[in-house]
Design a binder for these strands. Structure first.
Lengths: 196, 196, 196, 196
DNA sequence: TATGAATGAGTATTCATTCAT
DNA sequence: GATGAATGAATACTCATTCAT
């Protein structure tokens, strides 16, 4: 197979995921038919099934792409600042994610609570992409945490991350228990307490 | 309408929710058809539409029933113990929920992350049922929290609750970032730090 | 359910089988779509699945109907003659079936070799319809066969019947090993020898 | 084209037929796709169409191969015995075929009633392969049949063969009208009567 | 010759919803 | 209120066939 053919294949798959992403965003997963996806991707019906078993599989691909995108954005923003303090770094990332969801409510509504950092990380590991692991190292490498083992730090981190995602969902979309602006101070205070 | 007729109606609705619960558990929401629900509930197809607009509506009813059930169980167990310390009480409830999901993995898989305490509480409020609010009061009423306003306590509480639900899901079902047994110590340690 | 509603249901099912029969005859089973069947039966798509699981199931119904029809025709024709000799009766039925297929080549092409008397009889038994069993009794009740047990007579009979069906198929449709007119004398001679 | 290239071609075709045979056996003709056939044959999809027009054509090839195989086996077994009596020889072949199907029920289920000796013989003639004709001659060459013309003998033979195939199918697969073990005596008795 | 990615018409099947009884 | 037969639009999915490489 020629290299250009290989590229064409990649492009087709990419187009499908992109089309699915857009449609899921616009009308929700269940209301989006595979028919619409292929139409928007300018690809034949059968081609879809060349790359994905069914709608769930392309859904996973969309979630992975979106989650990855958000975290990478956060990572890049973090690198531009030069925050010496670990807690500040973590709070920065938490805030970045929350703000992303606030600005992109549709994205939040789409991936609901499927924005799960552990799962994204797992996927990345499988694909031997450790960009995000780097970010985690950047965030958490600190004398603060020296009293915890490596494992323990990671797990604490995960807990914080799940917390941020979960609160974002309930607070931004349903204003429960309160609007996100009122939740943020409590949330950040909580994170500080956890890390100190 | 006679009282017994009223009871018959209630029973039909109850049967429908029960049937839906069982089927959602067995084969997932999307793979369960209204046809199957009415068949298992021994009710005619048209009858479904006398009580619910569509599948989403009965789904909400199922989630409310299940969440309520879990929390009530936790409340009753809590009352039998007589834990004087607030932190112990909260940890007890957290542990109770986690253990419930561990023993009923299918339930966890079914309601996924829809087990959201704030949302359940909101629903209870709407139905003017404050049993769960009582439990929250029981948990959080403590001099520990005197430095926080009522509002602030509630919000912290919610954050903890979301955290527990979220971690349960990822950890019990996917062993991410680690099996629940390994996550528990970290989680409880974190909760303690938040509350102290 | 009212009696007329019941009759309506019977009619719908009957229409479906009739439509399927016609289409299978015209264009073969595989080239006939369920879509066409329901269109010709003037029935909605979903209605098909109210009565049959899939195409195979309606195929079975068609085969049963056709086979039954042919055998009943033969039975009636047999009753109008008054053939005293058993062998003559059996040869008459054999000839009737062969001639039916010769005149209705499309039917033969459709049911291929699925015109199997044992299977039809089994089906009839299940439906507690013993008209065909009567015919068999009429054919085979004879002092000729007194040396055989009841079981043995039946089995011989079946062998003859399969033979007739099988030869009809190969001979009428493919002229193998010879056209049916040339095969008949040999076939009848063979049957005579079996029965004498 | 070199001889080895020729051999490669033959091998590809052979692989395709072999793969089709296996798949037809495992999952039936209709449920087997050409895609699966080429995958199992380790051949590209387009290659299929270099050798066969469509699925029917490869089906014919499979039937021919299988039928031929069975009959050749029978022929060889027959040659090892040295049965002087024609009736014994014919009964031996009949029994051999029945036993083959009994041991290879899947094969019987696959080719259904398409195991038709006349049709196989016709195909062999077209390919100028007269091995099977030889077997027929071996079976039927006998003073017994001197009263019949050559043609007549052949036709009787064919009738017997169809009978055996047909009865095998109904009796082995459906136990109709009785299991094959109970049918055999009647069948053999019948064949004897025909030939005497 | 051989390949296998791409096609898209075709097909089975589902299922929420209606409505006459 | 209760029923359940009927509906048919919507949808997922298949697969024989083509054709540029």
């Amino acid at each position: 197979m020629g290299a250009s053919l290989q590229r064409q294949k990649e492009e087709k798959k990419h187009n499908l995921v992109q089309a699915a992403y857009e449609l899921f965003l616009e009308k929700g997963t269940t209301k989006t038919s595979i028919d619409e996806i292929v139409r928007r991707a300018n690809v034949a019906k059968g081609t879809f099934y060349l790359y994905f078993q069914d709608k769930n599989e392309i859904w996973d691909a969309v979630v992975a792409r979106v989650s990855n995108h958000i975290l990478l954005e956060a990572k890049e923003a973090l690198e531009q600042r030069n925050l010496p303090d670990m807690i500040d770094r973590i709070l920065f990332v938490a805030d970045y994610v929350i703000e992303y969801f606030r600005k992109n409510i549709l994205v939040l509504r789409m991936i609901r609570r499927d924005f799960s950092w552990p799962l994204v990380l797992k996927k990345m590991e499988q694909e031997q992409d450790n960009t995000l692991l780097q970010m985690l190292d950047q965030c958490f490498c600190s004398p603060y945490l020296s009293r915890y083992s490596m494992e323990e730090s990671y797990r604490m981190m995960f807990i914080i991350m799940e917390m941020v995602g979960s609160i974002s969902y309930t607070s931004i979309l349903h204003d429960q228990p309160a609007p996100i602006d009122e939740m943020k101070p409590v949330l950040f205070h909580t994170i500080r307490k956890i890390l100190l």
